[in-house]
């Protein structure tokens, strides 16, 4: 209810009618896995350096139709962040402006639901520029893979169960192939794999086994 209202408001606030497609009904069975690499972890001070998005159609991950872009950030690269994503100043210097990349990304994702790991952060990063450019926030439905994972694994866990929602832990637990992490494309791809597998487990109502807690001696 609230979401629908927000969407209507956003649609009203949309400055550029060219982007009205963001509010169209999404193509059935499709979604887009998104991942951003940033200069740091502050949504206020830090900025995007790379974006990748991969379409998912049914049980297929359309890696052949991927979206990948390096962005020339406005914020200074944080030394810690460089260690994470390994994109140095000189690597991102050749990148394009965030405005250009964002508008292109919007055309790629359209009104499809967004799939991500800790998607909230990525969306917040993107929304910063959305508001500035189009006067709205991303209206797409958001699917958090760690949320589905949590429900499948810890949904019925007794209080005090140790919860592990780290990206690498989920990948390992689901038996998915590990690719290079912290490269936007690989992260988006691994997230898409997680999504397909978790969605299947959910459809078949299969729970993920928890390690039995160590017995108290």
């Amino acid at each position: 209810m609230l979401l629908a209202l927000k969407r209507r408001l956003h649609r009203h606030l949309l400055r550029d009618p060219l982007y009205a497609f963001l509010f169209e009904p999404p193509p059935p069975g499709e979604a887009v896995s998104v991942d951003c690499e940033t200069t740091g972890l502050s949504t206020r001070k830090d900025d995007i350096v790379a974006v990748a998005a991969i379409r998912i159609r049914g049980n297929r991950i359309l890696t052949s139709e991927r979206f990948e872009a390096t962005v020339k950030p406005r914020a200074k690269l944080n030394a810690e962040a460089i260690k994470v994503h390994r994109l140095r100043e000189q690597d991102v210097a050749s990148g394009r402006s965030i405005d250009e990349v964002l508008l292109e990304l919007l055309r790629f994702i359209g009104s499809r639901p967004l799939v991500g790991f800790y998607l909230e952060f990525d969306v917040a990063m993107l929304n910063k520029h959305m508001r500035r450019l189009l006067g709205i926030e991303l209206p797409n439905q958001q699917i958090e893979v760690s949320g589905i994972y949590y429900r499948r694994k810890y949904g019925d866990a007794p209080p005090g169960t140790q919860v592990d929602l780290r990206f690498i832990s989920i990948m390992t637990d689901l038996g998915l192939p590990l690719l290079d992490q912290h490269d936007a494309y690989s992260d988006a791809l691994m997230t898409a794999m997680m999504y397909l597998k978790l969605r299947d487990l959910e459809a078949r109502d299969i729970r993920i086994a928890r390690q039995r807690a160590k017995p108290v001696s």
């Binding site: 049980n59 297929r60 359309l62 890696t63 052949s64 397909l196 597998k197 078949r204």
Partner: peptide, 9 residues
Amino acid sequence: EALDIVYFR
């Protein structure tokens, strides 16, 4: 460039 990935239950 041409590859897609597919998941089967």
